[in-house]
């Protein structure tokens, strides 16, 4: 399912965060959303799942205008891995995954056995079936992200939005999570900080800076040494791995910033 942002403008407490962003995410692709802290990655994702209402422009998911629809209608199409998830909630893993069925419930069609079977199946798909009866606070960071991904899958989404899903994960769990998202075969937008990781796992990349889209396209077109220097203020060489053919960013030292730091 296609996701489209048109001329999206957001300011928070009077400060402009997104100043007219146009972005089209193609159906079925994995798009990496890159940019320094404060560039507007999370904010752009939030306008899609109705957490922040844009002051201008429109967001559409599969032709549905997100902001003239309902929270529930959007939740039937989009599932999200947010950064704000409470971790100390005394819920079992199965109960947590079942939360993903909420947007599909109505007063008449309430939770039932089908939901539970689906939840177990989703846990299976993220290799977390053995965690089914564990309580949420007892999980490690990697286990928690997998379980939250299972909850997102239980929403049976057409689009998956992931806000820095690899935070707090060690390298092997980062790779595992991203390859899992790839295997799911749904349209996915992932906000990421690690450029090499993004280049390895995403079909296309979109680079944000100061609330504007600087570049969008295949990794080798977006990640040029000039752009990385301009946007991040870091000198680097972009290499091609001799065996896998993937991009590798060899970072140099930080260079003196040529622009004002952004919050």
């Amino acid at each position: 399912m296609k996701v489209e942002a048109r001329e999206v403008v957001v300011s928070l407490s009077g400060r402009p965060v997104l100043t007219g962003v146009d972005l089209e995410v193609r159906s079925g692709e994995v798009l990496g959303l890159l940019g320094p802290n404060g560039s507007g990655k999370s904010t752009l994702l939030r306008t899609v799942y109705r957490a922040i209402r844009p002051h201008g422009g429109a967001v559409e998911v599969g032709g549905l205008d997100v902001w003239s629809s309902t929270t529930r209608e959007v939740a039937r199409r989009c599932a999200v891995l947010t950064q704000d998830h409470a971790t100390e909630v005394e819920l079992s893993v199965l109960d947590l995954v079942l939360l993903g069925r909420i947007p599909h419930r109505t007063l008449i069609r309430r939770s039932d056995r089908d939901d539970e079977a689906l939840a177990r199946d989703c846990l299976d798909r993220v290799d977390a079936a053995h965690l089914t009866d564990r309580m949420l606070p007892t999980l490690s960071g990697g286990e928690r992200q997998r379980v939250l991904l299972a909850r997102a899958l239980a929403q049976q989404p057409k689009v998956l939005l992931l806000d820095e899903p690899t935070n707090h994960l060690d390298i092997s769990h980062q790779l595992e999570l991203l390859s899992l998202v790839r295997r799911l075969g749904v349209t996915a937008v992932i906000a990421l900080h690690d450029l090499t990781l993004a280049a390895a796992y995403c079909d296309r990349l979109a680079l944000l800076d100061l609330g504007q889209l600087v570049a969008v396209g295949p990794p080798d077109e977006v990640l040029t040494p000039e752009r990385v220097r301009d946007v991040y203020g870091v000198a680097c060489d972009v290499l091609v791995h001799p065996r896998t053919g993937r991009l590798l960013l060899a970072l140099d030292l930080a260079i003196t910033p040529t622009k004002e730091p952004t919050a």
């Binding site: 957490a51 529930r72 989009c78 999200v80 704000d84 409470a86 909630v89 819920l91």
Partner: peptide, 11 residues
Amino acid sequence: MTGDETATSLG
């Protein structure tokens, strides 16, 4: 209970 944004994303 799991957070405002999560709840929003759950509809």
